[in-house]
Design a protein around this nucleic acid. Sequence first.
DNA 1: AATGAATGAGCTTTCATTCAT
DNA 2: AATGAATGAAAGCTCATTCAT
Lengths: 203, 203, 203, 203
Amino acid sequence: MPKIVTEADRQLKRQVILDAAAHEIARIGYDRANINTIAEQAGIGRGTIYLYFKSKEEVLEVLLDSVGQLINEVIQQSIEQHGTWQYRLELLAQTFMELASDHRDYLRVHVSALHGVNRPIGAPVARWLKTTVSHLAFAFERAAERGQIRTSDPFTLALLVLAMLESFVLLPEVLDLPIHEAVARSAFMAEVLWGGIRPLHTP
Amino acid sequence: MPKIVTEADRQLKRQVILDAAAHEIARIGYDRANINTIAEQAGIGRGTIYLYFKSKEEVLEVLLDSVGQLINEVIQQSIEQHGTWQYRLELLAQTFMELASDHRDYLRVHVSALHGVNRPIGAPVARWLKTTVSHLAFAFERAAERGQIRTSDPFTLALLVLAMLESFVLLPEVLDLPIHEAVARSAFMAEVLWGGIRPLHTP
Amino acid sequence: MPKIVTEADRQLKRQVILDAAAHEIARIGYDRANINTIAEQAGIGRGTIYLYFKSKEEVLEVLLDSVGQLINEVIQQSIEQHGTWQYRLELLAQTFMELASDHRDYLRVHVSALHGVNRPIGAPVARWLKTTVSHLAFAFERAAERGQIRTSDPFTLALLVLAMLESFVLLPEVLDLPIHEAVARSAFMAEVLWGGIRPLHTP
Amino acid sequence: MPKIVTEADRQLKRQVILDAAAHEIARIGYDRANINTIAEQAGIGRGTIYLYFKSKEEVLEVLLDSVGQLINEVIQQSIEQHGTWQYRLELLAQTFMELASDHRDYLRVHVSALHGVNRPIGAPVARWLKTTVSHLAFAFERAAERGQIRTSDPFTLALLVLAMLESFVLLPEVLDLPIHEAVARSAFMAEVLWGGIRPLHTP
DNA sequence: AATGAATGAGCTTTCATTCAT
DNA sequence: AATGAATGAAAGCTCATTCAT
């Protein structure tokens, strides 16, 4: 009888590989990240990676899709909340920061790919950006229609919000902040943003 | 008899090389950018590059320093203006957009290196960020002291402003805008930002 | 309780593996033939092959021995016939063609290994060639002594005959002939050959 | 000034590489032949080969085209001779043998590729075979029309002749003959062949 | 000063073979 | 007995850098 490997086992090992890959790519970038090193860090043989992924490129694609989904979920949950948009923005900033803290390597890879140059490999993240900006812009547009926020350009606003969020992933590295400090900063970010879009009559 | 090459000639050719390098790196990234292709685009021989730069890495370093200075000048000139901070922010956004439009390749390389992963090569841009954030934060702090703007965290505010500015390098890819449209978007950005930091008593 | 596997069962499964191997090797050659693909085509697991053969190399060896024996039998039966040598040659050509048609993959592998380069793996076929040429040469020598054919160099004649026969394995590929046409061609081959060695006084 | 390398220099070094490749491929076959070893035998660095050939596959293609041309020249010169066809066939056999002796590695590669299995890489030689068989068949057809030889199937006859010639590349390995002996054998081959196709009225 | 031919380290990927189940 | 997941040696190829000219 063959060794029995369930689909769950496969997914588990895929995750181990993805984690190792995220670590390496976050450290030295996709091009320099070495399949051999990734395998070592994943505690498996070099060839084993190719039983789980078609190529090095596919590892990155799955990685990016995975983190893209994570981010989308955070955004979705935040902006679908009941309550004021001030509150929603605070929540968005905070949960995004927590995500970045929990999955630091993944976020680094994501941001790196997003702002990275136009290699074919950047395409998936570019698509992600367009989609996510659109969703966010739509939410802003509805909010503006209802007088909950005030904006003349929901699309660009959405891009700005995403840019702010993603730039905060850089914070820990640049400022060497402990995590609770960074969370506090995210609150400030939400505050500035809210100031920029709140309806004039709000206090 | 050796050909006489003045320092000005050297600087000129260095610039030609840097332009070619910026083009290639903006296109496919530092790691994939090919010294041979860069030499061809610069119209010189492959080995000649090494008479002007120690290594491929040095080319990038000089490139990044160069664009870093360009950005600093734009920022400096904008925030040192006379007039309201609302005006200064508008000017900053606009001139930055013009810079991004005039030196698109350079800016792409800059943003890519800034958000890129932690390779040794990223260090120069990280230093640039710390310095520039500090300068900007200092200006915001002074402005806050004078009641020209309202902020509780000048440092983070500075980071937010830079994040907004740099995010606009993505605009062409995301929105496919003609340049005058993009400039208009920058005005919107300044508007939101100003809304977020203007003193409460301002109109 | 171990499954009981008789020697006959073993031989049967060995044959299945050999067939699959012949198919793959005939298609893309020994070096590129993939153990995994062979196993799939044989309808067994990858590791199972190693219960029946020591290595990939051994599979080829057995394959070559097997087809070598097949050919020898055809040759033996033809030249041991009663009747004129003209008849025997015709029969040889025809039955060889039928063999090539019935076991096309096996013959392709055989010819490929025979004319292939001097890898250790070619040794078995080289031995086969020496032996078979010798047998055929011996028969020609006896026939010459009895005046049934006329030749000054039975050994080289034997080599020529084998070369002609084997070259006909190329026929389908070169001429895209249907099988009965190819058989007709084999008759022509026998005719030319007979013309070259028949005693002068024969009609 | 760059190092000046003339086209003649290039061709010379290409030839050195081809010779080394022919040696290795004749020894262990195309698939096992190692670019590294070939480079070593050619006395150059590993990467240098790729300055002269696009890929390992191209090396083989050029190699095969080159030997194909050599063979074609020998055939052409022989069958265009004045004199009887008996003489032409003798000449053909002899000059072919000399070719095989002068360029043993090249001929081994040629024959190996010709009888090798249907890898994409075999296509060039298959084309060569079709063309060359056609040419030869055409010559035989004309000769038959003029009553110089007697054959009912020029095409198959041409294939037979080529098969005989190529089979003699195996001679050294099978018989371990010194070269003059091998040439003598080629005379025998021509003799048998001539016997098989000479017009009935010839002596 | 300028060149581009030459180099070899280092990369991704394949695949015969092993072995726990 | 049978399996297929796991392995790592080995291969082709790219490219930053050197250096003879």
